[in-house]
Design a protein around this nucleic acid. Structure first.
Length: 332
DNA sequence: GCCATACTTCGTCACCACAC
DNA sequence: GTGTGGTGACGAAGTATGGC
């Protein structure tokens, strides 16, 4: 199904707004109770010319400008574009309505089924965009994220990822590059990469990072293979990291993690399990962020389409009235 | 200023789908 | 069968707003 009556002009396209989508969407939502600001849609240069394709410029709340062509020329596409999407949306709306009126009637498993059948927002939007040229796609990997992704998993194929007590992430890659990311900076700005120059081969069967909370001189120390220490200086806004020889013995509260091959004691097994769990949590955290971002983008896209379709609907009604006037002239 | 309420954001868990 | 990613649901913490 196509939607040739809509020609989107991507001056503020949705995928580009990923970075600002948070704030933009928040502004849209912080009004009275999350009602989409469809009232901001402005129509310019309507020109309901009969016979000639009237082009309407629609200014969407997001700043996106959309051309809406005359509605006489082509048959109106359905409001819901792709069959898959239709199924999903109908299911969702039905679920909402049902829950409002007779939620108790709905079987839990049925609801579960409906939910589980729902494809991801990326899928939905991409299907939508393949049908509608004006609808942007959600990129598999954002280009801006490609270089410095907030996901630790996207960084230089790290072999081990650790989180410090201050929330920072340290990833030790195959090439013995140490990457430190600051979660507070939404992922990436705080990402640092260090390359160990003289680490040599790691101890047999062990990839170990040992974390010490804070040394006496106000620095943070991360113990890494080769009896070396990554020291974080606390001066200034930008933390600096240095590879040093350890100044102290292994401090209290140290966390050690070993590769599975070297696990022997139940304690090591437990630590490995803890490490895996933390890794899983970290990944899930990032996945949840990504999911929410996509969801916002998806909702934004739907809101834009609603705005466009409302304008189209308005034009259709106007033209219907015009036709009525033509076909039934007053006899007075 | 304090409190209550509503709303937003975030982390986590549980579940499911999919790839291997 | 297992691992992993995606997403709904839930609760906690933070923030905004309005009434007193």
């Amino acid at each position: 199904m196509t939607m040739e009556t809509i020609d989107s002009q991507q001056d503020g396209s949705i995928p580009d707004s990923v970075a600002e989508s948070e704030s933009a969407h928040m502004q849209m939502q912080t009004g009275q109770n999350s009602i989409p600001t469809l009232a901001q849609v402005s129509v310019a240069g309507s020109g309901t010319g009969r016979g000639s394709p009237a082009v309407t410029l629609v200014q969407l709340p997001s700043g996106q400008t959309v051309h809406v062509q005359g509605v006489f020329q082509t048959r109106q596409p359905s409001v819901i574009q792709s069959p898959q999407l239709q199924t999903v949306q109908v299911a969702t709306i039905a679920e909402a309505d049902e829950s409002a009126e007779s939620e108790s009637v709905i079987d839990f498993h049925k609801r579960r089924e409906i939910l589980s059948r729902r494809p991801s927002y990326r899928k939905i939007l991409n299907e939508l965009s393949s049908d509608v040229p004006g609808v942007p796609k959600i990129e598999e990997e954002k280009s801006e994220e490609a270089g410095t992704s907030p996901n630790i998993s996207a960084m230089a194929v790290p072999t081990s990822i650790y989180q410090t007590s201050t929330g920072q992430y340290i990833a030790i890659a195959q090439g013995e590059a140490i990457q430190i990311s600051n979660p507070g900076s939404d992922g990436v700005q705080g990402l640092q990469a260090l390359t160990m120059t003289n680490s040599g081969a790691p101890p047999p069967g062990a990839t170990i990072i040992q974390y010490a909370t804070q040394s006496a001189d106000g620095t943070q120390q991360f113990f890494v293979p080769g009896s070396q220490v990554v020291v974080q200086a606390t001066t200034g806004d930008m933390p600096t990291y240095q590879i040093r020889a350890p100044t102290t013995a292994l401090p209290q509260g140290v966390v050690m993690a070993a590769s599975p091959g070297s696990l022997h004691s139940p304690q090591q097994l437990a630590e490995e399990a803890t490490r895996k769990r933390e890794l899983r949590l970290m990944k899930n955290r990032e996945a949840a962020k990504e999911c929410r971002r996509r969801k916002k983008e998806y909702v934004k896209c739907l809101e834009s389409r609603v705005a466009v379709l409302e304008v189209q609907n308005k034009k259709l009604i106007e033209e219907l009235e015009t036709l009525k006037d033509i076909c039934s002239p007053k006899t007075d």
